[in-house]
């Protein structure tokens, strides 16, 4: 193994339109999609991409880079670069947890290359941009030569590096509905240094109903085999009166629910321990941002 050269041999294809790309995916075997390359090229150098005869560069497909706002929400093309997302003022005002998550990723010279769709398709359990999209109730648009289907972001992941994508399919866009009401969002991340991959990440998106929690969604990264959507614990909070003790109790509940592992970034014990405080703090922050006392 080296990190200087790509030892693997493959053919390079660059379709100029989406139909052509989908045709390639349906006709050829062992195609990997190149968008930003910030995961794929590293993996190729590390020789952890066994099945690849073709690299398909999707940077010639303009529609995959577009962003479109409507009253219902925003549709982000799968190959929109992270830097274009984090510097988008409208994105920041509507979905601050998403832009905070993107800003917390890697380095500027990586975010200029990396796409948001790549963060999903690489399917790392640590993927920072995923949690906010899940918590905002985002939907992924998946296309193939057979047609288009939509999958809730929370149902996209199966295992580390594995998603519901079939071999002839690709992620083309991410739709996020506009949050309604008195909303507050928080994304927090624990990492060794700022550009590091997270030891733990957490997202909270809530809508306040007076002194009570209306709707709430929480997710965590780096604590399970896939980005973890805390569906049941979140649902149990709806309608409850917000208080410091509720925030603390929720932290305990989430920590108790997790079954993280030891890995090269941190330990299971640390993850469970820090989760208590992270959840309580993020909940309080999201609540305060929603205008709650």
């Amino acid at each position: 193994m080296n990190t200087k050269h790509i030892m693997k041999e493959y053919d390079y294809l660059k379709p100029s339109g989406l139909d052509e790309a989908l045709q390639i995916l349906s006709e050829k075997e062992k195609v990997k999609i190149y968008a930003g390359g910030t995961d794929l090229i590293v993996k190729l150098k590390m020789e952890t991409v066994p099945d690849m005869d073709y690299m398909m560069d999707i940077n010639g497909i303009e529609e995959l880079k577009q962003v479109e706002y409507t009253d219902e929400g925003v549709r982000i093309g799968a190959n929109r670069k992270l830097w274009d997302i984090e510097t988008d003022q409208r994105m920041t005002s509507l979905f601050p947890a998403l832009t905070d998550a993107v800003k917390a990723m890697a380095a500027i010279s990586v975010r200029n290359l990396a796409s948001i769709g790549g963060n999903f398709c690489n399917a790392s359990p640590v993927a920072d941009a995923v949690g906010p999209v899940m918590c905002y109730g985002g939907t992924l648009e998946i296309a193939s030569a057979r047609g288009v289907r939509k999958v809730p972001a929370k149902d996209f992941f199966l295992a580390p590096g594995v998603t519901v994508l079939e071999k002839d399919e690709m992620l083309t866009g991410i739709f996020i509905p506009t949050p309604k009401g008195d909303v507050g969002h928080a994304f927090t991340k624990m990492a060794r240094t700022k550009s590091d991959i997270a030891k733990l990440s957490l997202c909270v998106a809530l809508a306040r109903d007076g002194g009570r929690i209306g709707h709430i969604a929480m997710s965590m990264g780096a604590v399970a085999a896939r980005p973890l959507f805390l569906e049941e614990i979140s649902a149990g909070l709806a309608g409850k009166e917000m208080s410091e003790s509720l925030a603390m109790e929720t932290g305990e509940a989430v920590s108790g629910f997790l079954q993280p592992i030891d890995d090269n970034r941190t330990t299971a014990v640390y993850r469970k321990d820090v989760t208590k405080t992270m959840v309580a703090d993020a909940l309080a922050l999201a609540w305060a941002r929603s205008g709650g006392a």
Binding site: I6, Y12, K14, Y34, I41, L113
Partner: peptide
């Protein structure tokens, strides 16, 4: 005007 890491970019891309 954007900075990128050239170790990650295939020349053909």
């Amino acid at each position: 005007d954007r900075s990128v890491m050239s170790c990650l970019v295939p020349a053909v891309a």
